[in-house]
Design a protein around this nucleic acid. Structure first.
Lengths: 106, 106
DNA sequence: ACAGAAGTCCGATAATCGTCGTACAATCAA
DNA sequence: TTGATTGTACGACGATTATCGGACTTCTGT
């Protein structure tokens, strides 16, 4: 059983934007962007259950935002930075450059 | 009755991304970006009913993507380009630069 | 062999979303 | 005033979504 990953030229803008439009997933992408190595799912600071976490990683993978590679019982996640940059230049950078946590202007 | 528009510094990334993650709304934003004047709702090439159209414009407005100003019976729509650029530099450009219609690689 | 760890898969549930039709309000032109 | 135009408001409907718990699979270490 191989994990579905869309090809670089198959990425759809609306799908990618939707994948990035959830706070949990946005957090995952941000953590991933600042990691030098692929990270297993458990390494993320996410406050939802395991099964919900699986769901979010699948949404990101099927949108083409991340790559998941199996290693033992772990699934290593990495950003598909090159593919995203090639298909939607500047998009990922703009998303990552946005204030990390929209401070509520106290 | 005044239309709700979020302040420039209140825009939330996830909300803006969600507003842009629908094909209909993406089309509206694209048409708006290539118009030199604010456009009334009826001027858009949208293949959904009037009420659905109203809904999409509201989502865009409440996310802070567009501004709506009443003029007679028309509601003039314009992109909040400056506010978006200030809050999320490069985001709108990246979205607009993406291939307009994801050609299905015939 | 066995227990723990890492994640998935399978419903289920409540919330949100996109869509519609119809009724309505406001303006403008004749 | 009458009628056309522009768009909203109000449900309603089906589809999708985010969330969960619990059972399950697969690997790893002892």
């Amino acid at each position: 059983m191989t994990l579905y990953h869309p090809q670089a030229d198959e990425l759809e803008l609306a799908t990618v934007l939707h994948a990035l439009s959830d706070p949990q997933r946005l957090g995952i992408v941000r953590e991933l962007s600042s990691a030098s190595e692929p990270q297993p799912c458990g390494a993320f600071d996410v406050n939802v259950s395991k099964s919900t976490c699986t769901h979010h990683f699948r949404v990101l993978r099927e949108a083409g935002v991340i790559e998941q590679r199996q290693l033992g019982t772990s699934r290593l996640n990495s950003l598909r930075r090159d593919d995203l940059d090639a298909r939607f230049p500047g998009l990922l950078d703009a998303v990552l450059a946005a204030a990390p946590a929209e401070p509520a202007i106290a």
